[in-house]
């Protein structure tokens, strides 16, 4: 057991008003200093290729999804946010996802999926906003996750650059 010894207040502290005026003086001073808070959402946060936002799937320039549903992101995901089912395709790659879901409520934006992907098919986008009225609405399906490769280009280049260093 620890006995906490309360400090005795001084006379000036006990009469209260001087401290109140001191606080108000600080507030008044700050009114003439530059603002540091941001008027979100009117004023959005700046993002760049290093931003680790929500994961998104790459749609290649030929219109096909880059994912071959190998399941490595599903296995790497520490939050068990990803669920994939595969199907056969006539394309050369033979295999593509039939269902690709990310439960955005579970996703912790760790980027492991991006790192695990052998096909450059999933990347952390700069999209950060997440709102819905139901939980199920935040389980994103393939259509909601797909983004053209051009949108994700800066991030793709950045990740390639990082990987080259290894």
């Amino acid at each position: 057991m620890v006995v906490v010894q309360r400090r005795e207040l001084t006379f000036w502290e006990r009469i209260y008003l001087p401290e109140i005026f001191r606080g108000l003086a600080i507030t008044f001073k700050k009114m003439f200093e530059p603002r540091v808070t941001r008027q979100y959402p009117e004023e959005a946060l700046p993002t760049n290729e290093v931003t680790r936002g929500q994961p998104r799937l790459v749609v290649k320039d030929d219109g096909n999804i880059a994912c071959v549903s190998c399941g490595l992101c599903e296995a790497a995901c520490p939050a068990y946010a990803i669920t994939i089912d595969s199907q056969e395709t006539e394309r050369f790659i033979e295999r593509e996802p039939e269902r690709f879901e990310i439960d955005m409520l579970r996703c912790i934006l760790c980027g492991f999926c991006e790192e695990a992907c052998p096909k450059e098919a999933i990347f952390m986008s700069d999209e950060l906003e997440l709102a819905n009225t139901t939980r199920q609405g935040l389980v994103y399906d393939m259509k909601q996750l797909e983004r053209p490769a051009s949108t994700l280009k800066p991030r793709i280049d950045y990740v390639r650059r990082i990987n080259d260093r290894w």
Binding site: S69, C70, G71, E74, A75, S86, E88, R95
Partner: peptide, 9 residues
């Protein structure tokens, strides 16, 4: 079994 599941699942 073709593309039905990843074996670790």
């Amino acid at each position: 079994f073709r593309f039905k599941a990843r074996v670790w699942n």
